[in-house]
Structures are given as C-alpha cells and as structure tokens.
C-alpha cells in the first residue's frame, strides 16, 4: 500500500495533547512591536526619519558651524554666490545664507511643531469628548467644527493675520484656530467606531469603568491614526507658514524663516537663483521627509490598509 516500511508498532494509538494543538502557530507579537517591524522594513520611511533627525540637528546647531551668523549685514559682500567663506552665498544685504538657512529652520520647524502639537491637544480632547459621550453633546460640538470647517483654512488664517499684530505666536495661533478640526474629526470617528465595537462592549459588560475604558482600550487604539495625523500635520503647517510668508504675512524681520527667506529672494531670483534655491529646497525636503514618514507610519500602524 505504501512505499515506506511500516512496523506494527506504528499503529499504536497516541494521545495528542489538545493544549498543544490550541497553541497559535506563528509568532504572535504585540501591536506596537509588529508595527515597528513593518515600519523598519520600509526603507523610504526610514530615510525620512534620518532626514528629519539631520534637519533637527542642523536647526539646533547648524547656525554657527560655518563661523558666520544670520543677522550681520555686509553690503560689500551682498549677493555673492556660494563660496568657501559663505557656503550658501549671501543675500541682498550680504547676510550669510547658510547661517540664515539654519536659523530659519529653527523658526520654520518650531512653527510646524508647535502648531501641530496645539492642534493635537485641542483636537484629541474635542474629538474624544464628542465621540465618547455622543448624543446631543456630540451633535453640538461637531456642528461647531463643521461650520468652522466650511470656510477654507487658509482664508481663515489670512483673515486672522490681518487683524492680529504680526509675530511668531500670531502665526501659530492663526494656524491652530481652525487647524485642530481635522484631528478632532479623526479622533471622534475612531472613538465612535471603537465604542460600538464588540470588545469595548464586552469590557463594558464586564463592568469596566468609563475612565478605565478610555485609557485601557480607546486611547491605545486611537493612537495609530493620531500619530499619523500628527506627522502629516507638521508638513502642512510648514507649508502654511511659507505660504503666508509669500503673501507678506510671515514672521517679521529680523526673524527669518524658510518662507520669508524664499519670499525675499523671489524678486531677484532670475539673477540670484541660489538665494531662493536653499530655503525652497529645505521646505520641500522637510515636507517630503514628514510625508513619507507619515505614509510609512500609516502603513505600519494600520495593517488593514497595507497593500
């Protein structure tokens, strides 16, 4: 019957340990470990992380590396192309563009991070409260958010910039006054969905308190989308800052950001393209890095979305 030689003893019954068979085969790992494993495999996203770290490092320490500073005028040396003395050249007032680029990085990244963090705090609280309590509270809170959302974001920011005195914090406040809505909507959606899901029902029926539910179940499960949204808010805040600078609504001199630097260089970019190139390049690079990290995080944190 069979090619193999079988002995009679092979036909003895054996006891199979049921517990053994119930064991889940394959490595079972935690959500975060699994997400990290997936993220690590994404070379592009890892490159993005490295770029962000480098940019942050240069924003903190890059300003004085070349031995120049960002505010010294030197009209004799205005509009000089990149050289060993001025690595990125000088602007129309003879200021060192390398030093200004990293000073600008500080301002641009600060605005981007700050605006995103404020969006995060307001958005998470608003969305979680609306989603968790539901009913009338949710309806009113979301109606307010909807009305604010129906006016284009940049239009609102510009109008606010008109009526407030120019300054760094004005920019941040203007950007966050309706910027949190996106985060609030995402958090609310997640909370609503999770609230109706069975394991939360199960936990509830087992007598878990609201606070315990919120922190043990809802918060960890909404973390993924929140982190992704946060990562993707930073480039959009950096974009908004540069956009406003182009309209002359950016941080006032002597402060400088990548946006104001490119805006200043715009008038003469036909003659001195390098003055525009450096700040514009770093705006794009920063947005690119955050965007690919955000995409990578989304793929890693949401296995359902993975293609």
């Amino acid at each position: 019957m069979s090619q193999v030689q079988l002995r009679d003893s092979d036909f003895e019954s054996i006891q199979i340990d049921q517990k053994e068979t119930e064991k889940i085969s394959g490595q079972s790992t935690s959500y975060w470990k699994d997400a990290w494993r997936r993220f690590r495999k994404n070379k592009l996203a890892l490159a993005g992380v490295i770029i962000i770290i480098l940019l942050a490092f240069m924003a903190l320490f890059g300003e004085s590396i070349s031995g120049q500073n960002y505010r010294d005028n030197d009209l004799m040396n205005a509009n000089k192309p990149p050289s060993s003395e001025h690595w990125f050249g000088t602007d129309n007032l003879g200021r060192d563009i390398f030093a200004r680029t990293w000073y600008g990085a500080k301002i641009s990244l600060f605005i981007g991070l700050m605006a995103s963090l404020i969006d995060l705090v307001i958005g998470v609280i608003w969305g979680a409260v609306a989603g968790f309590f539901g009913g009338k509270i949710d309806e009113y809170m979301m109606r307010i958010a909807d009305v604010l959302y129906s006016v284009p974001y940049l239009l609102v920011v510009i109008l606010l910039m008109v009526i407030m005195p120019q300054g760094l914090w004005t920019l941040i406040i203007a950007m966050t006054i309706t910027g949190w809505i996106n985060m609030a909507r995402i958090v609310r959606g997640q909370v609503m969905q999770l609230r109706s899901e069975e394991y939360v029902m199960a936990a509830k029926s087992l007598g878990a308190s609201n606070a315990r539910l919120l922190f043990k179940h809802l918060v960890p499960n909404t973390m993924g989308p929140i982190i992704v949204t946060l990562t993707l808010t930073i480039p959009s805040a950096i974009f908004t800052e540069a956009f406003l600078s182009y309209l002359g609504l950016g941080v006032p001199a002597p402060k400088a950001s990548w946006g104001t630097m490119s805006s200043d260089a715009l008038a003469s970019f036909q003659y001195y393209p390098y003055q525009l190139f450096f700040p514009a390049f770093f705006i794009c690079l920063t947005m690119l890095a955050f965007n690919i990290v955000g995409d990578g995080l989304r793929d890693a944190l949401d296995p359902k979305e993975r293609k």
């Binding site: 540069a242 715009l266 705006i283 690119l288």
Partner: peptide, 22 residues
C-alpha cells in the same frame, strides 16, 4: 505623487518659471 505633495505650489511656480521661461 509624494513629490507633488511635498513641493508647495509657489515653489513649483518658480521652478517652472526658471526652467520653461528663463
């Protein structure tokens, strides 16, 4: 697509001007 999202329209505008017009 990811480049398109990362290059703001106003920078794109100057790049286009530089290449195609200048």
């Amino acid at each position: 697509a990811v480049l398109g999202i990362s290059v703001p329209s106003f920078i794109m505008a100057t790049i286009l001007q530089y290449i195609f017009a200048i």
